[in-house]
Design a protein around this nucleic acid. Sequence first.
DNA 1: AATCCAAACAACCGCCTAAGT
DNA 2: CACTTAGGCGGTTGTTTGGAT
Length: 282
Amino acid sequence: MGRPPCCDKVGVKKGPWTPEEDIILVTYIQGHGPGNWRAVPTNTGLLRCNKSCRLRWTNYLRPGIKRGNFTDHEEKLIIHLQALLGNRWAAIASYLPERTDNDIKNYWNTHLKKKLETNDGISSSRQPISKGQWERRLQTDIKMAKQALRDALSFEKPDCPPELKYYYTLANSSHSSASSTSSATYASSTENISRLLEGWIKKSPAVPAMSRANSDPAQHSDQTNNLGDSVFCIESATTPDVSTEGSSEVQLPLELMETWLFDECIGGDYGQEIGDLQLDEF
DNA sequence: AATCCAAACAACCGCCTAAGT
DNA sequence: CACTTAGGCGGTTGTTTGGAT
C-alpha cells in the first residue's frame, strides 16, 4: 500500500528556520499546546511540513532545553547510557531531561565516538556485556521506567516538594482545560524563545504571568535561570508521555541512576547488584 | 585576504509503532 | 481484522562556522 508522504512536497519550505517562523510556531503552541501537528502548518500559515514543525519544537523551541557545552557529568552519563542502551537516543535523553535526543546524538557522533575510539582508557576498560548481563540491565531499565511513572503519578504524597506539586497541578489543569491554562504552561517557552531570539526582537511577546512568577522584568533572567531546578517538572508538563519512557522526573531516582551508572565501571557484577539490590528498594 | 577543510549542528528522510476507524 | 494516520525514532545529509594554510 505504501505510506503517503507526511506533507505535500510542493510549496513546503525546507532548510533552517527563521526567527519569524519560530515566533509563529511558539505563539501557536502557546495557544493550542503541542500536538495535532498536522493542523499546525494549516492553522499558522507556516510553509513547513508538520513533521518539521514538531521537530523544531521538540529539538529547539520546547521549554527547559539546555543548550551549549555538555558538562563532564553529562558526558559520562551519556557514555554509560550509550553502553547500556545502545543508540537509543530518545531513551538516553530521558535521563538527561534538559537535552534533546538529537542533541545527544549529535554530541555522540561528533565528540564522544571519536573520543572513545582514540581513548582506550574508557572503551577498553569496559568488559563485553554478556547476554545475561544485558538482560538484567534491560530489566533494570524497565524497573526504572516503572518507578519513574509511579513517582510521577504520586505527586499528591505529603512529602512531595511544593515545586513538584505546582507543576503537576499546572500540567493537569492544562490538559483538562487547555484554553484557560495553556498560556501559563507555556509561559516558560516564551522565556526560552526570547533568549533564543535575543537580538532579533526587542521585547518578548506579552504572556500572562505564571502564577508564581514575579512580573518584574528585572527578575526575568533569574527566573529563567531557576528553570533548571524544576526542569523535570516542566518537561512533564509539556511532554507528559516522556515519563512512560523512563524519564526520571523525580530527583531521587535520577541521582541513584547516576550513582549506579558511575559505579558500574568500578563494581564487578553491576547488573546483579543494581537489579537485585538497589533498585528493588525504590 | 582568500581558500580549503573539518567539525558542529540543525534539519530532513524513511521506517516503525500505536491508536483510531 | 485490515487499513489509515499521527507521532516517535534513529540514521543521514546539508549548511554553517571556525581554524589552518
